[in-house]
């Protein structure tokens, strides 16, 4: 422990306690209230998984991917086809879909990750568009733009999570597992290499970090998170269509990352929850709802440019050091 963190141990304890209190209060409200609030929270948690993975690639390794929705689609359709058409166990379908996503990320990433900046953004963007087209065209497998319905809820053997509340509880566990994995990666040689790449590729290279290989691995891990999120979505709603994994998923996830705090551990989760609930909170504004929603996002990004997670580090230390987690 550093001297600095010993001194600041107290505010850190308070800030942690406050964050946990907020989370517990929110969950108590959600589980107590039930109904559509559970649905909204379910989406927030699914997106939490999605953006935690994306954060490894974008926040830590500093690369842009506009095509992560492709892997969510793979996960979603993988789960739909394998569970509904072939009667596989949800967990088996989830793992198989995630494995397929990882393999495809590896194949697609190998040529594209040699690109940088805008070129990488364009290439990954194309990946999302191609997947969208495929999910419409391959209607024998995906049922086309009409969508795929009748996907069973999450379960194990004969035991099925029939209530949304129960599914949400399991989702939260999956998300916590995802955050735990991200945290382990962050605090390792692997994570340090990603952070180094995110800050300066030449410097990382000069220190012997194999930049391309690390980017590729981060891309594959992010794809696995996206695929799991896609599978969760399919179980939660029971219905998927190409639109579900369309471009809106990209914009929404970017918003969550930046509002929550890109490159931090809990920021993306906080962003996912806030961005998911914000439209619900603003329903009273009726016609003005979208405008107020956008204004709220702009205000947040102006006053908390480093995201909600920076409020945390503000509480912990007085300096403008970015949050560690």
């Amino acid at each position: 422990m550093t001297l600095r963190s010993t001194i600041s141990a107290k505010p850190q304890v308070w800030a942690t306690a406050l964050a946990i209190a907020v989370a517990v209060a929110l969950l108590a409200y959600v589980f107590g209230r039930g109904g559509y609030v559970v649905t909204v929270m379910g989406f927030a948690v699914i997106y939490g998984v999605f953006v935690t993975g994306l954060n490894l690639f974008m926040g830590y390794a500093g690369q842009a991917s506009f095509g992560q929705n492709a892997f969510a689609a793979l996960g979603g359709y993988g789960t739909a086809v394998l569970c509904a058409d072939y009667g596989l166990e949800p967990i088996v379908a989830l793992v198989l879909s995630a494995t397929l996503s990882a393999v495809i990320a590896l194949i697609v990433g190998y040529p594209t990750l040699r690109l940088r900046g805008h070129y990488l953004a364009m290439a990954t963007f194309a990946l999302g568009l191609i997947t969208y087209e495929l999910s419409i065209e391959q209607s024998g497998l995906t049922r086309g733009f009409m969508g795929f319905s009748g996907i069973p809820p999450l379960g194990l053997g004969r035991f099925q999570l029939l209530s949304e509340r129960a599914q949400l509880a399991v989702f939260i566990l999956i998300m916590l597992l995802g955050v735990w994995v991200a945290r382990r990666l962050r605090g390792s040689r692997f994570g340090r290499a990603l952070l180094a790449i995110g800050e300066s590729e030449p410097a990382a290279n000069a220190l012997g970090i194999q930049v391309f290989r690390y980017k590729l691995v981060a891309f594959v891990i992010a794809a696995v998170y996206a695929s799991v999120a896609g599978s969760m979505f399919a179980h939660f709603v029971g219905y998927i269509s190409p639109e579900v994994f369309g471009l809106s998923m990209v914009t929404l996830s970017f918003t969550m990352l930046y509002v929550g705090g890109i490159g931090t551990l809990w920021g993306p989760i906080a962003g996912a929850v806030l961005v998911s609930f914000l439209p619900q909170l603003l329903r009273g504004f009726r016609d003005m709802q979208d405008i107020i929603y956008c204004l709220a996002l702009i205000v947040i990004l102006i006053f908390v440019p480093k995201g909600l997670a920076s409020l945390w580090s503000l509480a912990v230390r007085r300096s403008d050091v970015p949050a560690e987690r």
């Binding site: 040689r189 692997f190 340090r192 952070l195 800050e199 300066s200 030449p202 220190l207 012997g208 050091v321």
Partner: peptide, 29 residues
Amino acid sequence: VQLFRQRTVEENVQIGFHLATRGGVGAAL
């Protein structure tokens, strides 16, 4: 070649240990 400007002083040195250490994703998890 620059420092990793947004990382702490200590992290900069820790990243420097890359070649002197080993381990990937599995080791991290």
